[in-house]
Design a protein around this nucleic acid. Sequence first.
DNA 1: ATGAAAGCGCTAACAG
DNA 2: CTGTTAGCGCTTTCAT
Lengths: 337, 337
Amino acid sequence: MNKQNVTIYDVARESGVSMATVSRVVNGTSNVRPSTKKKVMDVIEKLNYRPNEVARGLASKKTTTVGVIIPDVTNNYFASLARGIDDIAAMYKYNIILANSDGKEKKELKVINTLLSKQVDGIIFMGNEITPAIRKSFKDANVPIVLAGSVDSKKTVPSVNINYKNAIENVTSELINHHNKKIAFVSGDLRHSINADHRLKGYCDALSKHDIQYNQNYVFETNESYKDGYEISQNIVDQKISAAVVTDDSLAAGILNWMTDHNISVPDDFEIITSNDTQITEMTRPKMSSITQPLYDIGAVAMRLLTKIMNGDIEDKYKENDVLLQYGVINRESTRK
Amino acid sequence: MNKQNVTIYDVARESGVSMATVSRVVNGTSNVRPSTKKKVMDVIEKLNYRPNEVARGLASKKTTTVGVIIPDVTNNYFASLARGIDDIAAMYKYNIILANSDGKEKKELKVINTLLSKQVDGIIFMGNEITPAIRKSFKDANVPIVLAGSVDSKKTVPSVNINYKNAIENVTSELINHHNKKIAFVSGDLRHSINADHRLKGYCDALSKHDIQYNQNYVFETNESYKDGYEISQNIVDQKISAAVVTDDSLAAGILNWMTDHNISVPDDFEIITSNDTQITEMTRPKMSSITQPLYDIGAVAMRLLTKIMNGDIEDKYKENDVLLQYGVINRESTRK
DNA sequence: ATGAAAGCGCTAACAG
DNA sequence: CTGTTAGCGCTTTCAT
């Protein structure tokens, strides 16, 4: 019942060596004679000594913890990335401080600051948009930062993503090939680069390649919620639109269920293809066709990249560092063959 | 471009006071003459000084960070609790170190240790089971611990939950009232106290109150996955079971969809009621009836309780501290009226 | 109201 | 291979 925490000094005294030696055996750095090493280890065991990482952090200027900024853990897309991040972090002996931001700039800025004051060794940022203020605080931070599943329109920060533009272009083309003339593009906030510069661009490119006129009425801006999907569906149908490319699975589920609830058969009368291939694509009836993204891997690779940068293993960290992972498309039941 | 971080010493010098005074204005503790306070604040602003929380943690023995152990962030049930935890933590100026355990004792033990070595001020634990080893490490930890959405059969740790037994008993009774004679109980690992001692108990109590014979063949032990639900359904149907009480929403969705896929009408031919009221209960067709739990609140209340204990605001922290939040039942479309 | 000084527990030269 | 000695940046008595 050692209430008082035992320190390195206690171990040193008890085993008749200096604290430097204890530090050495604990860190496995530099050589220590096997016999004294064993002696120290025994005392550590006996006293149940556990190094104080805070003291270590102060002395070494490394905390072995990284900050992870996430819009909302409750969102399966981001949660999947987070899982990949944490697993790789654990693999490299890092811990993560997880902070929800709701994708709000103000919260993001605040949390970046507290993370920095906690001396994290690096930050993984997930967010809808890298605003100028965010970009500035990234620049001022003296720790490396990597984006996961998030794009920086200015490409000023290393990131890992898929090629959203190509992916959306692919599925839009497929829908066009199914003879759909009017195809909706249903996304989140169009002020966000990921939606405007990448996904909408892909949609537009597909249209123009097939000589289809772009119609602004067919693009729907939402909050990417199930409810939003359900609510905009009437409007979609009223315009005689026959297919939709959707950027979020919950959102897509809302549209799908509205159709079903209104006796519009999917995929016979209406086709839907969504973007994130989260678990819910399998749970709806019909199951949803989707772009497939290696969600876990995006997080994992981002964390791996961060460890490399923190380690100085990367020649030029300002160099091009936008890794694009492979995406795919899975045709389930919300699209025709 | 202040590459070198500015320290408390720098602002002390720059503003012509001692570091003790700077510390005082930063912490707002004890009195400082308004004029000198302003002077210091200005310098802090000018130098863009940000207190080093690690140094502060070492000196004060408080890190204002708490550890959160979670089986899997990717699981919406736990993610919802985590969101409640983080929000309240932020409200009280704490950060959370989030660690996934997969509910595996070995990982849990390991992570408890690293959390403790990082000097967290407290821990919120979510897990399926408090094993003797876990209980021991909790006892040895010299920081408070609170369970969220998790039960300790020995009631040795403060916790916040709902009354799982009563909830399951309620819904089972309802199914019995719908004239179902054979009702399945589909749960996760029955070695876990929450399933065996609480939920199964509730199921049994409902049966016995209605003079229905308990039949072991009607209880299904699973991994609580969608896939498991889908796979056990044939067995359920083969036994002429006409309703199921399920402990997890994905699991329930699996059963529901299997029924639908096999032309068994829910709820006409088969009734299902699930337990967690996560988002997917609204996404399936028919929508699933469910026990409703205040998921976010369970996390939030757990965190609030932890802050109180950390603060010493609770008289006797060894006293009965099992808070039970209100649950409800919502009848959607997978049960008859 | 403010300053001086002693740590907090550990790492990291620097000696030897 | 091992010990000595400075700090790391801040909080916290104890004086004044």
